[in-house]
Amino acid sequence: MSANRTEVIELTRRLVSIPSHDDETAAGDAVESWLRAETDAEVTRDRHGNVVARRGEGTSLALVGHHDVVDPDGSQVVGPAGDDTAGRAAVEGEVDDESGPAGPDVEYLVEERDGRLYGRGTADMKGSLAAAMLAFRDADPAGELVFASFVGEERGGVGARAAIDDGVAPDYAVVGEGSTNYAGEDQTDVVVAHRGRRGSTLTASGTAAHASEPEAGENAVYRACDAVDVVRDLDAPDATVLGERVQGSLVVTEIDGGSAWNVVPERCTVTVDERTVPGERARLEAVESIDGVEWTVDQDLPPMACDDEGFADAALAAAAASQAATPEQVTKPHATDAGWLAEAGTTCVVCGAAEPGEAHTASESVSIDALGRCYEIYRTLATTFQRGSKP
């Protein structure tokens, strides 16, 4: 059995219509019930809300996605009867604070036009999730085929991390985040590495004094500025994965200090955003060479590097067989759940229908042709790729 264009569209529409920015339960219910009805796989739903299905034996290949989304724009919400009352109310600021623009009596709007599906989650990433579900159903797997849809990806990968802690550890994985139109127009490429994100705070402490006698205090803002100079002199991280360069970045994004115009500030904080690369980090600990400055890490989303050239090549071959264009192996600037899986020992690539600039926007959309390509890529790879046990 092979999915047709109508099936891909209908399943995407069904998943996208279900609100899942505050509570992923209903979306997880839909994924779980579809898998139980459409496949003979072993389907589980863990206590966190993750949905995992398995069939076949041997080396495991997972098709991985997530069913949570970021908050919708007001224009992406409709009422239960199909009107746009809730959407208009959200735009006009008339929504009840308790329910928000997508409360229990509303759905997400899904529209089809010009060969694309529009709505919150179409690109990130319920469209690719639908393609993976259909491919999971239709593939004749060469080994064990796993499907996993996680919760909380938009909250730092909490679902993936919990599943990994509970023992979900496939040998290989294709994570369905965006890789379309990275190397060329109208093509779906294969990501072999992506950046992570390390968010840090520099806290400068001083001693307050009256501004008329600044020498009586220690100015925390000055110390923070000295720490910023250290950050500016640091090199951003850089790495090469399977011949592809991954360039990180390092930038100060916020600064906050002082309590009044006539008081020498005793505290100042600086936020630093670092986009990390596989195996390399900026030497941010150097800021602690400044008196009174402390460095703390607030968030650390891991980067991903595919550690098996054979798997990357197999994914590229499946991508090439599924489209007229010539796809390429590329890198991605954004962190995904592939980082957590790779950190746990899973060999990953990223391949999905979303294009640069589509996710998290009021006009979010996905190409229906790209969804069809992803279905074929996932099904082909699941059918053709098999390796022995990983070392």
Rank of each mutant, 00 (worst) to 15 (best):
residue 200 S to N: 13
residue 180 T to M: 01
residue 381 L to I: 10
residue 280 E to H: 13
residue 199 G to E: 15
residue 280 E to G: 07
residue 56 G to M: 02
residue 224 A to M: 08
residue 278 P to N: 08
residue 97 D to L: 12
residue 390 K to M: 05
residue 86 A to C: 11
residue 189 D to M: 10
residue 167 G to I: 04
residue 171 D to R: 01
residue 300 D to V: 09
residue 198 R to D: 08
residue 351 C to F: 06
residue 328 E to C: 08
residue 275 R to V: 13
residue 227 A to I: 04
residue 365 S to P: 06
residue 147 F to P: 08
residue 264 V to A: 03
residue 127 G to K: 02
residue 129 L to M: 05
residue 156 G to C: 09
residue 45 R to V: 15
residue 13 R to H: 11
residue 134 L to H: 14
residue 241 V to W: 06
residue 68 D to M: 12
residue 247 Q to W: 04
residue 51 V to Y: 03
residue 131 A to V: 03
residue 20 S to R: 05
residue 353 A to G: 02
residue 226 D to T: 06
residue 38 E to I: 04
residue 62 A to C: 10
residue 190 V to H: 11
residue 166 D to G: 01
residue 365 S to N: 15
residue 211 A to W: 00
residue 330 V to Y: 04
residue 228 V to A: 13
residue 36 R to S: 10
residue 144 E to Y: 05
residue 219 N to A: 07
residue 370 A to E: 01
residue 313 D to W: 04
residue 179 S to N: 09
residue 207 T to K: 14
residue 181 N to V: 00
residue 364 E to N: 08
residue 188 T to L: 14
residue 243 G to Y: 10
residue 75 S to T: 13
residue 61 L to K: 04
residue 139 A to F: 07
residue 390 K to P: 12
residue 388 G to D: 14
residue 45 R to L: 11
residue 115 G to T: 03
residue 276 T to V: 12
